[in-house]
Amino acid sequence: MSARLVEIIVPDAQVASAKLIIAGHCSRFWQEPVPDGLEKFSCVVPSRSIEQLIAELDDNFQGAEGFSVLVLQVEAVLPEIPELEEITPSPSGKHKPPSRLEVFFTRDRISTNELYDDIEASLELRPNYLLTVILSALIAALGMRSGQTAVVIGAMIIAPLLGPTMAMAMAATLGDKALGRRSMITLSTGILAALLLTFLLGMAIDVDPLVPELRNRTIVHPADIALALACGAAGVLAFSQGASLALVGVMIAVALVPPIAAAGLFFGSGEAVLGYKALFLLATNLVCINVAGIVTFLVQGLPPRNWRITSGIFLIWLVILLLFVGLIGGRIAFGGSEPIFDNSGTFSIRATKLPE
């Protein structure tokens, strides 16, 4: 059973109200007095009920002296507690019980508070963050230059851009302006640091644009859009279930780190056109991750604070994605440009056309 141990501390005067709320969300809880006129409840709550329980406690006891809530992961429970199929509505009638569809979609998601706690540390601009971004880009750049796919995968496991990327989608879903601002600053700083490092690397080493690992980052295909959408959805799905950050990071990094490193190498080696194409792939992937991330967060039951803000941000991302899809479709329909070497070994750009 996916459950949490929730410890709730309330003033003695609020014990009766707290007991009614807790009893509506779980079938097993304990009560004990604590110093300073407070009472502590310990209860085992199904994960799908955490969101509503915390919201109801906050509505009733926010500002009460000594009130606090602590949520802990539960590995095992004996004797077993059957998961509640329906959540009893609170006596106040302020919160409606979730529908069966809501229960189905939210049964495995960790609470919003847990999501905030998981993502908070990764949004701080510290030397360690910049160092991991630079190392990840360096490893990816050298791996792509030599055509070693395994090395590129190793760069993804470092996953420095995981936090700000997930935070952008989460901020858009919740309508949290402060979180969105922090995530954009952190992500932009990381991307610029990676571009600068790989630019200097591109100036110092020979870069062959025809190496498949590099060349693939200069051409955006519909399959790349599908890959980025899948990465964003899978990353958010794993993140919202409390999965390993390394696993989530690989899903996100596969769409972000390689094009950043490729763009830096191309700019540093004097291939500005190819560098801009790699940046276009980066922008496309970032838009796709946010579109898929917002949709997945909503499907997982993450409650927006303001639907107007959430829908507005989502529509902006969607319009940008449709614009990119149109540009990609136009290139395919009317003939794209692909880098080649002619027989004399001279690098050139040749237009490719669809067969008639």
Results as ranks from 00 to 15, higher is better:
residue 15 V to I: 10
residue 16 A to M: 04
residue 21 I to W: 02
residue 23 A to V: 00
residue 27 S to G: 15
residue 27 S to M: 08
residue 30 W to T: 10
residue 36 D to H: 11
residue 36 D to N: 09
residue 42 S to A: 07
residue 43 C to D: 02
residue 43 C to E: 01
residue 47 S to E: 15
residue 51 E to R: 05
residue 52 Q to T: 13
residue 52 Q to W: 07
residue 57 L to G: 00
residue 58 D to A: 10
residue 66 G to Y: 04
residue 68 S to G: 03
residue 71 V to C: 07
residue 71 V to F: 02
residue 72 L to P: 12
residue 73 Q to M: 11
residue 74 V to F: 03
residue 74 V to M: 04
residue 77 V to Y: 11
residue 78 L to V: 11
residue 82 P to Q: 12
residue 89 P to C: 06
residue 98 P to H: 06
residue 99 S to T: 14
residue 100 R to H: 14
residue 101 L to R: 10
residue 110 I to W: 01
residue 111 S to D: 10
residue 116 Y to N: 13
residue 121 A to N: 13
residue 123 L to N: 07
residue 127 P to F: 00
residue 129 Y to P: 00
residue 132 T to G: 06
residue 145 R to Y: 04
residue 146 S to K: 12
residue 164 P to A: 02
residue 164 P to H: 07
residue 183 S to K: 00
residue 184 M to N: 09
residue 188 S to V: 09
residue 196 L to N: 06
residue 204 A to T: 09
residue 209 P to V: 00
residue 216 N to D: 14
residue 218 T to S: 09
residue 219 I to C: 06
residue 222 P to T: 09
residue 225 I to L: 14
residue 225 I to F: 12
residue 231 C to W: 07
residue 232 G to L: 04
residue 233 A to H: 02
residue 243 A to E: 08
residue 247 L to N: 07
residue 248 V to C: 01
residue 249 G to E: 02
residue 252 I to H: 08
residue 258 P to D: 08
residue 261 A to F: 06
residue 262 A to M: 05
residue 267 F to C: 01
residue 271 E to V: 00
residue 277 K to Y: 02
residue 280 F to L: 09
residue 287 V to M: 07
residue 294 I to G: 04
residue 299 V to E: 00
residue 320 I to S: 07
residue 325 V to F: 14
residue 329 G to M: 05
residue 331 R to C: 09
residue 336 G to Q: 01
residue 338 E to K: 11
residue 341 F to S: 12
residue 341 F to E: 13
residue 342 D to K: 06
residue 343 N to H: 13
residue 349 I to L: 12
residue 349 I to M: 11
residue 350 R to Q: 15
residue 351 A to T: 14
residue 352 T to C: 05
